[in-house]
């Protein structure tokens, strides 16, 4: 499972303040904490704190001063990405692009040039899809496009667009169906990712719903997630679901061994 740590996001007060004050301590601290918790990528999001490329580059540099975990650049503006991608010491993951022709044509050349990866959202101009079929159609569009730009399936992370279960309960199942079909696009398949916490938005049992849903998503082929890597119970569910799917080898101390 590819774990993408969500915490370096200006949606969180301490990170927003860090950006405004240009004080990298909080960013470095979360970079280290999430890396110790075995994050494979660290998502870096400027949020509403700034819209300047230099601020995004500064955040990335702060992370890279603390750890060498690859960066997930949570931004989809070409002008920002052109500046931010070259700052990354390891090929980053760009988060994200929608299945909209112009957007794909704009972003993919930059991503391909730097051998980076990209999250492709299964949504188009019409907004969030309502059915599995529409998700598959949108995802297929992104998939065909990355091949057109000479990228490999492994550079693509398809996101089925997770919806809050509380408000759109029937969607949870459509998403699972879509994920199963994404795995059939190629062999080996591209990665499949999701913004997990959407599923539990507005509920009273957030962590229970998150860890139940991710286990089901893994059973359908998901292999990456943007999540709170500090949530031990959630990560333990992931480890266990991967054993159930025979993706890793069982050992009595599998939970402890992951954190060593």
């Amino acid at each position: 499972m590819i774990l993408i740590g969500e915490r370096i996001n200006a949606g969180f007060k301490d990170i927003k303040q860090a950006i405004l004050d240009k004080n990298g301590d909080a960013i470095k601290e979360w970079a280290i904490k999430q890396t110790n918790a075995k994050a494979d990528y660290l998502d870096v999001n400027l949020g509403t704190a700034s819209n300047k490329p230099e601020d995004l580059c500064w955040m990335i540099e702060m992370v890279q001063e603390a750890v060498d975990t690859p960066i997930s650049i949570d931004n989809n503006r070409p002008a920002m990405l052109k500046e931010a991608i070259p700052v990354c010491k390891k090929p980053p993951l760009v988060n994200s692009v929608t299945a909209v022709e112009e957007k794909l044509n704009e972003l993919l050349p930059i991503v391909a040039e730097h051998k980076a990866s990209i999250i492709g959202l299964a949504m188009d101009e019409a907004g969030s899809p309502k059915t599995a079929d529409k998700r598959v159609e949108n995802a297929g569009k992104v998939f065909a496009k990355i091949l057109e730009f000479g990228m490999e399936p492994e550079q693509l992370f398809l996101d089925p667009i997770v919806m809050p279960m509380k408000f759109m309960q029937e969607q949870a199942q459509e998403i699972l169906k879509a994920v199963s079909q994404f795995t059939l696009f190629s062999d080996p398949p591209c990665h499949i990712v999701c913004g997990l916490s959407n599923i539990s938005n507005g509920t009273t049992q957030k962590s229970l719903i998150n860890r139940t849903y991710i286990a089901m998503m893994i059973a359908h082929g998901q292999d990456a997630a943007i999540l709170d890597v500090m949530d031990d119970e959630l990560v333990n569910s992931i480890l266990t679901a991967e054993l159930v799917m025979n993706k890793s080898i069982y050992a009595d101390s599998y939970v402890e061994a992951f954190r060593k």
Binding site: I249, Y250, A251, D252, A257, K260
Partner: peptide
């Protein structure tokens, strides 16, 4: 036994 094989390696590491 591949599971014990992995476990012994975990123990060695520990």
């Amino acid at each position: 036994d591949i599971n014990i094989g992995k476990q012994v390696n975990i123990l060695l590491q520990d």
